[in-house]
Nucleic acid binder design. Structure first.
Lengths: 148, 148
DNA sequence: GGTCTAACTGAAATTTGATTTCAATTAGAC
DNA sequence: GTCTAATTGAAATCAAATTTCAGTTAGACC
């Protein structure tokens, strides 16, 4: 599967999710989604805006649509605990978390979190319907270890 | 061990940590630490300020000292992904995480995260020196399940 | 005890991320 | 093509967080 084709398929899937939820497929939304599917990386609202403002998409719309796209399940919020909101595209079969360097902020994805049993146990103990989880691991990357 | 005694011991331990790091034990710092050790709960900077302003501690000092106390290891940052910074006291032998209701924000602590092996594995794979991790589990509490 | 100085403080000003307002535009149903 | 509710961008606003700065204080050293 070529990347462009994958991107196209994702975009159609996303458009259908939007319609299903009763939202329009507007230009700003398409531009933002295309950008995320091309980049396949997390980004702050300001980073997204920097990337899409030349297509006439304002910062307000970026904020509004990042929230809306996350609510519909096209994006998800991630958090590196540095005071910035971030979003990343939800890609099929891509459950991962982030290992974050406390020195330079460099981020590495990892995939083996294995927290299903914990979720079940928590649900049983608390009566919560458990939805999802977020995990951040912190440390220092090789370069930052040397610099100290 | 009575609570007041525990609080006292924690405070002395904390004062020693401060001194060791080259910081002074000022009145605002003592007030903030005492409050956290008494309450033993997470709080936002504004909540802390509301609690300590009558002792003459300004909001600026609250922000500055929450950050400093976290850096020294007396407090730690926690995050419920609702856009507010939060801090909680670091208590001996108290490694826990939070189960958060996406409906009403209610928070339940839990203690069995069992991520040591994952941390080791990540360290081996990436060369990072792994420090710590943060985990948030999301769902809906009983009451919020009914309300939907 | 007193003296000294760098660390620290609170108040005010400022910055900045995020939200709200509102008149103009547009997607998409008909 | 027509219509209308959803959506937009710019500007105003809000609020969290940070910076500035002159005054205060903890605690090291007599």
């Amino acid at each position: 599967m070529k990347n462009s084709e994958g991107s196209q398929a994702l975009l159609e899937e996303a458009a259908s999710k939007l319609r299903q939820a009763g939202y329009k497929l507007t230009r700003p939304r398409r531009v933002i989604m295309e950008w995320f599917y091309r980049k396949q990386e997390h980004a702050t609202p300001h980073q997204v805006h920097a990337a899409v403002k030349d297509f006439g998409v304002g910062l307000t719309s970026v904020y509004r649509n990042l929230e809306l796209l996350a609510q519909v399940g096209i994006l998800r919020q991630v958090c590196f605990h540095d005071g910035y909101q971030r979003y990343e595209p939800v890609l099929p079969g891509d459950h991962h978390h982030h290992l974050i360097c406390s020195g330079c902020g460099k981020v590495v994805k990892f995939f083996n979190c294995d927290l299903d049993k914990l979720e079940e146990q928590l649900a049983a103990e608390t009566g919560y319907v458990v939805d999802r989880h977020m995990l951040q691991v912190f440390g220092y990357c090789r370069r930052c270890q040397k610099d100290r």
